[in-house]
């Protein structure tokens, strides 16, 4: 049952991706509406999927990579829809939804087995910490997609080669504003995620901070976003530099989220437990 539902959801995400990309190519209103309808269906199913998983596992389903990636995709889709509702940014779907789909594809690769929760993770900190972190990742993913759009549009205007994207992407200022908004939402969440993680570490292992690779890289990620936010708010940094910085910070964030688990062993390398 779970497997089938997961496949359908994944399939719908792929369909939504195709829809949003087609909308950018054709610029047809109807195509966008269809893409949104598919995404809405995918998101609803995905929500049901997460709830089912929760009931089946008996604990917050954010323990292994399959679950984390799935929830990550869910939060990307959720924020995308929230943003569209607040202010419609043209072509955003074509850049964001593929990322959510990638997350789902990644989730499809990992074991979906529900295993008993190891003692170290048995705490009510689990839902708090993991949810906050993954939601923060979702917002930063949106910021990343917006930054990519900014870089493309900026290059065209700067080089004076106004190609097919010129017409299709929003204005620089709109993209910059949306990027900043993502940062303002994402940064407090990330901060909260690290704080809750630290509190959890204290209750589980008796130490707030043990320089575990995941912790170290989280700190690096946090510092990067902190620097970006500071430059934006205090110095008035914006535009191209802010966009590049957003892209770099997201690269580091991805490494913190996924790379650390594979490359560097430590307390957080939960994925290995279930392989």
């Amino acid at each position: 049952m779970y497997d089938l539902l997961f496949q359908i959801t994944l399939f719908l995400y792929i369909g939504a991706t195709v829809g949003f990309v087609m909308h950018v190519v054709t610029l047809k209103k109807g195509v966008r509406k269809v893409a949104f309808a598919i995404l809405g269906t995918a998101f609803s199913l995905h929500t049901i999927l997460l709830l089912l998983r929760w009931l089946a596992a008996g604990h917050t389903p954010l323990v292994n990579l399959h679950e984390s990636l799935s929830f990550f995709s869910w939060s990307v889709a959720a924020f995308f829809m929230l943003f569209q509702w607040k202010e419609r940014v043209r072509a955003l779907g074509a850049f964001v939804i593929p990322l959510a789909t990638f997350g789902m594809l990644g989730a499809a690769f990992y074991s979906r087995k529900v295993a008993p929760l190891p003692p170290a993770l048995q705490s009510w900190w689990l839902p708090v910490h993991a949810t906050i972190c993954l939601v923060a990742y979702g917002v930063f993913t949106l910021a990343f997609a917006i930054a990519i759009m900014y870089v493309i549009q900026e290059r065209q205007i700067k080089k004076k080669r106004l190609g097919a994207f010129f017409k299709r992407l929003p204005s620089l200022q709109t993209l910059d504003r949306m990027g900043q908004l993502c940062l303002k939402i994402g940064f407090p969440l990330l901060t909260l995620g690290i704080i809750t993680g630290s509190l959890w570490a204290d209750s589980a292992w008796g130490s707030y901070w043990s320089w575990d690779p995941k912790e170290t890289w989280s700190l690096i990620t946090w510092l990067l976003y902190a620097a970006l936010l500071h430059q934006r708010l205090a110095v008035g940094w914006r535009g191209r530099r802010a966009a590049y910085m957003t892209i770099i910070a997201f690269g580091v964030l991805l490494f913190t989220f996924l790379g650390v688990n594979f490359v560097l062993p430590g307390l957080h390398s939960y994925s290995t437990w279930y392989e």
């Binding site: 549009q153 205007i157 010129f166 929003p170 204005s171 200022q173």
Partner: peptide, 8 residues
Amino acid sequence: ELARKIFG
């Protein structure tokens, strides 16, 4: 047109 692509 260019101004609108820069500033919205």
